[in-house]
Computed example of a mutant assay.
Amino acid sequence: MAKSGKGRHRRGRQHIPVGAPPGTLIADPLAHPTHLRLTLIAPDRHHSIDHATMADIVGNRDKWPVIWLDCAGLADVALIEEIGRQFGLHPLALEDVVNSGQRPKVEFFDDYVFVALRVPDQASLLHYEQISIFFGEKFVITFQDQPGDPFDPIRRHVATEGPNRLRERKADYLAYALIDAVVDSYFTPIEMLSDKIEKVEESILDGTHKKPMQDLHGLRREIMGLKGILWPLRDALAALIRNDDPFVMRETKIFLNDTLDHAMRMIELVEIQRDTLTGLIEVHLSLAQARTNDVISLLTIVSTIFIPLTFLVGVWGMNFDPDLSPWNMPELRSYYGYPAALLFMISIAAALFGLFKWKKWL
């Protein structure tokens, strides 16, 4: 599987200088060193050469029914160009290999098919690695940005003793198996994304989430990134199935249909997640508005209770002298005036509180 984001450097798309001829290959300064692994496949045997050289490739190409060349790391553009010359790969296709960041697509040539795919980072759906696959009648070539891929189950299957469909069939079936492994690598991060959404949903409804909008927008970015990859992936698989290339067998297209179904199911899951996330954003905003309204209502009720009390305190706090006139607040001389005033104000506050409870405003 693709590696987690920890300890990885991020590669940006390498831009070709203005005026450079089409098909110019320029290595990314941060590209990983190029490493070749050659897998030789026949119905009754197989052989793998790690750290393969061009001499290994040229010397074994015509001796085996199917060869699989895996190129990890794109720093050595001279070696990549030499591979292209040996297998007749178009320079523009090789340019798409080196300039990673391509949207999933499929291109058909006279003797081979070029498929560009993206593998998700298992730790975050914000980062993807490009995997490019070329396959013809007797060869499969895979290019990837760096070591680590979802192809280990395929390698183990090739090495399995006894009847083996990967060894018995042609290169198109091996290419299908690799494409299917890339597509299936999305299931785990999509399930992890669903778990994240469920946890955020629970915390929002419980009122325990401290920064819900930050997490919701982060999840939204991951979902939008997934949508931007899965829809082109679906189109590429559909084009691969519809095309009538002679080296893509009819039986292989049946298996590719199953891979297309997987892609469609993932699109449906992502659409459901997007709708759920949209609903959560609306719920969060509604809850925030409701909490704000509750606070405003409480403050309004408190203010309403204290308005008459403040009025009474203001009236009794005026500096009138009852000796000058019987109209100048004679109650100021009352022996029990202070406790009577407090009792009167408490009675008003209690009456208002009872009224609010009766009206169900509290």
Results as ranks from 00 to 15, higher is better:
Ala171Asp: 01
Ala239Pro: 02
Trp316Glu: 13
Asp184Trp: 02
Lys253Val: 11
Gln144Cys: 04
Met54His: 12
Gly207Leu: 09
Ser194Asp: 12
Lys138Gly: 05
Lys359Arg: 15
Pro29Gln: 10
Trp327Ser: 02
Ile133Pro: 08
Met213Gly: 04
His51Phe: 03
Gln146Gly: 01
Asp111Val: 10
Ser194Gln: 15
Asp111Ile: 10
Arg37Thr: 15
Ala341Leu: 15
Arg11Gly: 07
Val283Asp: 01
Tyr186Val: 07
Leu309His: 10
Gln122Leu: 07
Met318Tyr: 15
Gly7Glu: 10
Lys360Val: 02
Ser325Ile: 06
Gly314Thr: 14
Asp321His: 13
Pro150Asp: 12
Met1Gly: 14
Asp149Ser: 14
Leu125Gly: 10
Gly136Ala: 07
Met54Ser: 11
Val283His: 05
Asn164Met: 03
Leu69Phe: 13
Pro22Gly: 05
Ile26Met: 06
Gln273Lys: 03
Lys170Gln: 13
Ile67Val: 06
Tyr338Ile: 07
Asp235Gln: 04
Asn99Phe: 00
Gly218Lys: 12
Arg333Ser: 03
Asp70Tyr: 03
Pro322Trp: 14
Asn319Ser: 11
Asn293Ala: 15
Asp235Val: 06
Leu233Asn: 13
Asn328Tyr: 15
Ile296Met: 15
Asp261Met: 02
Asp215Ile: 00
Phe320Met: 09
Gly225Gln: 13
His51Lys: 14
Arg220Trp: 08
Leu125Ala: 14
Phe356Ile: 07
Asp206Ile: 03
Ile83His: 04
Gly23Phe: 00
Gly73Phe: 12
Lys199Pro: 00
Ala78Arg: 05
Phe109Gly: 08
Met224Glu: 02
Gly23Ile: 06
Phe311Glu: 09
Arg11Thr: 11
Phe139Asp: 11
Asp28Gly: 12
Gln273His: 15
Pro43His: 03
Asn243Thr: 13
Val140Arg: 06
Ile41Thr: 05
Pro104Trp: 04
Tyr186Asp: 10
Ala351Gln: 13
Glu107Tyr: 01
Leu324Lys: 13
Arg167Ser: 01
Ile179Arg: 00
Phe87Val: 10
Val58Ala: 14
Lys360His: 06
His51Leu: 03
